[in-house]
Write a protein that binds this DNA or RNA. Structure first.
Length: 260
DNA sequence: GCCAACGTTGGC
DNA sequence: GCCAACGTTGGC
């Protein structure tokens, strides 16, 4: 079976939730190599993960940060299995309403493959998608109008909110190509951000390791927030169970602690 | 920090 | 099972 393609979001910026840093950047991912994608608490995203197979390709996306966009390529390395963090009351994404006899939330393992040579900012995709033209801007002519069309129909652009998304094969190829070749840096990005080279630096790309906060390995993905919130209501039990998990949970996604 | 878009919840 | 109210996502 040929591999399927997906996009998964993580938050590269630090945020403390229940005493844990939920950050998970491309740097973290690169140094950890393989991580479980726990914390998804959205049914649709969960179902999407359940349909993943080992070997499927994943676009790793930086979300809820200064320059959101696609940073790396990864691969599914373990198919869906119960997300034990849902049962851990100390975990930000504890879900009081599930129990072990009947797992509700699932996760997959994902293994880092490589960074894109050119971080693909969401703003670029939006700008292509929002254009009335069907031909790419200069610098991007290699994507052709099929490329433009593919971008215009991406869920990332048309619907946004989902933290785990399907990407179709052609679109995936196109994005990888974009990430390898770049070509927009002197055009659209520079235009809108006025001179600001939004690519490498914000994302910790390239050689310089920039100021990387604390240690990698922890970060949450978007959906967990809800669960984290609910969780406050409960807070019973303090015992960490023996789910047989020996590696400390790597949160991922995001929790929006307190906002507004 | 704001707030639009959209998902979830719960009353009926 | 509709739908208004509410809560969250996540870009800007």
């Amino acid at each position: 079976m040929s591999p399927k393609h997906w996009l998964m979001k993580a938050e590269p910026d630090s945020r403390i939730v229940k005493g844990k840093d939920v950050k998970f950047s491309v740097d973290d991912f690169e140094s950890i190599k393989t991580t479980s994608w726990e914390g998804v608490r959205n049914a649709e995203a969960r179902n999407i993960m359940k349909s993943m197979s080992v070997g499927d390709k994943v676009l790793f996306y930086h979300s809820n940060c200064k320059t959101p966009g696609i940073a790396a390529i990864a691969e599914v390395s373990k198919e869906a299995y119960p997300d034990y963090t849902a049962w851990d009351p100390d975990h930000p994404y504890f879900d009081e309403k599930t129990d072990k006899s009947k797992p509700k939330w699932y996760m997959v393992d994902v293994t880092f493959e490589s960074r894109l040579a050119h971080f693909i900012p969401l703003s670029l995709l939006k700008s292509v998608a929002g254009s009335s033209k069907n031909d790419p801007d200069e610098g991007l002519s290699y994507i052709g109008n099929q490329g433009v069309k593919a971008i215009k129909t991406m869920p990332l652009v048309t619907r946004g909110r989902l933290s785990v998304q399907h990407v179709d094969a052609e679109t995936y190829d196109l994005l990888v190509q974009l990430g390898e070749r770049g070509g927009w840096e002197d055009v659209s990005s520079a235009k809108k951000k006025g001179k600001k080279r939004a690519t490498a630096e914000d994302e910790g790309h390239g050689a310089i390791e920039e100021t990387r906060t604390s240690q990698p390995g922890t970060a949450l993905i978007p959906e967990q927030k809800r669960a984290a919130k609910k969780r406050k209501v409960v807070d019973n039990s303090g015992t960490k169970d023996e789910t047989g998990v020996d590696e400390k949970p790597k949160l991922r996604r995001s929790i929006r602690a307190k906002r507004r």
